[in-house]
């Protein structure tokens, strides 16, 4: 394998990895605070893709407005899901919350199927994101540069919010002990809503960039990325935001590079994440950056 081909594949891997990472951060934040696998998280990617699609195609908004609208509406839907489906059962056994989460995920997918229809729609990619630069033999897609830049900036913002602001401090405290935090006079539900909004907006950014990379949007497009993003979150150490981003990058690179080295295995691409998950659980269940799992 020559160096140009390798660099090319690494660029592709990093691009996919950033998208997994953006989704994984949302998973990891919600899991850190609520100890809940939010199955509906992957579907938020689909929601944001459709909102951006309708913004551009039906209402012919300029793309920055449509993308911002997608982020805001997806964030709002994230809060709505928490308030409607998860908040009423916060005190009940964990399995009820998981079942409700699956229900919400299925509801979003099938609602999209009923309202919009199952036929994949082509996503209109704005001019600014098309084309690619050539550096020697390596083709550098403009979109990859955008994805890497946007992910880095968003990760910085999230880390700043978590580590520097008061609400971030509340989030960190919540992930330790919810009861004590509520005794300290912190509005727990507001902090949880904020967590959902933040995670959902990251998923929205991921979703919009995802459908510029794979420009066919359909109601079930969020399922597989959602599953893989959770694997990325576990790989990085669940509850750890930086870990989630790193996990996403590793997963993206692994998928692209394994198929690049062994083209025969391209049919098994979707199974790689599962194998990584099993391997992590066997060797280091706390992930790369994780601490001991609290109960």
């Amino acid at each position: 394998m020559d160096i140009g081909f390798a660099t090319q594949q690494i660029i592709y891997g990093l691009t996919v990895g950033c998208l997994y990472g953006l989704l994984a951060i949302g998973y990891t934040m919600v899991y850190g605070v609520l100890r809940l696998i939010n199955f509906a998280h992957g579907d938020l990617l689909m929601v944001s893709a459709y909102v951006a699609f309708f913004g551009i195609v039906i209402f012919s908004f300029p793309w920055p407005l449509a993308f911002a609208g997608a982020a805001l509406i997806t964030g709002f839907i994230g809060i709505l899901i928490d308030r409607g489906a998860y908040k009423p059962i916060r005190k009940s056994p964990r399995i009820s919350a998981l079942i409700t989460a699956i229900g919400v995920s299925f509801l979003l997918e099938n609602l999209a199927l009923v309202i919009i229809g199952g036929r994949p729609k082509p996503f209109p990619i704005p001019m600014l994101f098309e084309g690619s630069l050539s550096v020697g033999q390596v083709k550098l897609p403009i979109l990859s540069i955008w994805v890497l830049a946007v992910t880095t900036v968003l990760l910085m913002i999230v880390l700043a919010i978590i580590n520097k602001t008061r609400i971030g401090m509340a989030m960190r405290a919540l992930s330790r002990d919810m009861e004590t935090v509520s005794l300290m006079g912190i509005d727990v539900n507001r902090v949880i809503s904020f967590t959902f909004a933040l995670g959902s907006m990251l998923a929205a950014f991921g979703g919009v960039m995802w459908c510029m990379k794979y420009p066919a949007i359909e109601p079930f497009m969020g399922v597989i990325p959602g599953l893989k993003a959770f694997v990325a979150a576990v790989l990085g150490g669940i509850g750890n935001v930086t870990g989630a981003a790193i996990g996403g990058l590793i997963l993206g690179l692994a998928e692209v590079l394994i198929v690049a080295v062994q083209p025969d295995w391209s049919g098994y691409r979707d199974a790689i994440a599962f194998c990584i998950m099993i391997f992590i659980l066997l060797t280091r269940p706390t992930g790369i950056m994780g601490q001991k799992l609290p109960d």
Binding site: R35, I37, R94, L98, I102, F230, V234, M277, I278
Partner: peptide
Amino acid sequence: RGDYLAIV
């Protein structure tokens, strides 16, 4: 933890 069972 059994939590991972769902996703696995």
